[in-house]
Simulated scan of single mutants.
Amino acid sequence: MSDKVKYQMEFEVKSSTSVLYNMISTPSGLSEWFADDVNIKDDTFSFFWNGSSEEAVLLTKKKGESIKFQWEDDVEDGLKTYFELAIKVDDLTNDVALMITDFADEDEMDEAKLLWENQIADLKMVIGS
Rank of each mutant, 00 (worst) to 15 (best):
L79C: 00
F34D: 09
P27F: 01
S25C: 05
E10S: 14
S16N: 01
S66H: 05
L79Y: 03
L20W: 00
S66C: 08
T93H: 04
A86W: 08
M23A: 03
V57F: 01
A35R: 01
I40S: 09
A86R: 12
E106S: 15
D90R: 00
S25H: 01
L79K: 09
S28C: 09
T44L: 11
E106C: 15
E111H: 11
N39G: 12
I87Y: 00
F34K: 08
E108H: 12
K62V: 15
D77P: 04
D43Q: 15
D95I: 10
K61C: 02
D91Y: 13
T93Y: 01
E32K: 12
D77K: 13
D90A: 08
I100Q: 02
A56T: 02
A35W: 01
S31V: 10
I87E: 00
E111N: 15
A104L: 07
M99T: 07
T44D: 05
F48E: 08
G29I: 08
A86Y: 06
L85P: 00
W71G: 00
G78W: 08
F45G: 00
A56N: 07
A35G: 02
M23F: 05
D107N: 12
T93P: 03
S52L: 12
M23H: 02
G78R: 04
E54Y: 11
K68E: 09
D37S: 15
E84Q: 12
F47H: 05
L85E: 00
T44E: 10
L30F: 05
V75Q: 07
D107Y: 10
S66L: 06
E111R: 15
I40V: 13
V75N: 07
D91S: 15
K68P: 05
K62P: 12
L85S: 01
D110I: 13
T93K: 02
V75K: 10
M9G: 06
G29Y: 08
K61I: 02
N50E: 14
E32N: 11
Y21C: 10
A56G: 10
L79R: 03
I87K: 00
G29L: 09
N94F: 07
N94G: 03
L58V: 07
K62W: 11
T26S: 08
E10H: 12
G51T: 02
G51Q: 01
K80Q: 15
Q70M: 03
F103G: 04
A97K: 12
V96P: 01
S66K: 09
T60G: 06
S46L: 12
L20C: 05
D107F: 08
I100N: 02
S16L: 01
I67Q: 02
Y82R: 01
L59R: 07
S25I: 05
K63H: 09
S52H: 11
S66R: 06
E55P: 03
E72A: 10
